[in-house]
Amino acid sequence: MNHVSSNRDGPHAGLSVLVVEDETLVAINLESILEDLGHTVIGPVMRLDELETMVDGGVEADLAILDINLAGAEVFPQAERLSGAGMPIVFTTGYGAKGLTGNWSEFPVIQKPYTADDIAEYLSRLKASEPVSVGS
């Protein structure tokens, strides 16, 4: 379940992007931004247990855009599993870079509210990478 094959045409277009965001309005907007840039959205995943199930089931994506705080809980345990399998991760948050501590402080953060340009810039900096498979 939840296996989505990624498009391997190139690094800057046709990526499959795992989107985790618990606010519908924000999630719809990010979905539109990514689709406008020519990428495929997996999700949006709006709850942590749903994300957990997807990681368990083996989710395939070129990168993940993760909202740090989902209904009061933090996404880090799942982020660790995704990152551990080599999936590039970028966090989004309303808390700013201070939302990241410890090992996570090296990870990129996109502050809310963000624009289509912010997302595009991050994606263009991301080097071409092979799709990774997480979990089973």
Partner: peptide
């Protein structure tokens, strides 16, 4: 408060652009 303001602005931004 900062978090809420930023999240609300993100929601407003989505409303406007969508």
């Amino acid at each position: 408060l900062n978090h809420r303001v930023k999240n609300t602005l993100a929601a407003v931004q989505s409303i406007v652009s969508q």
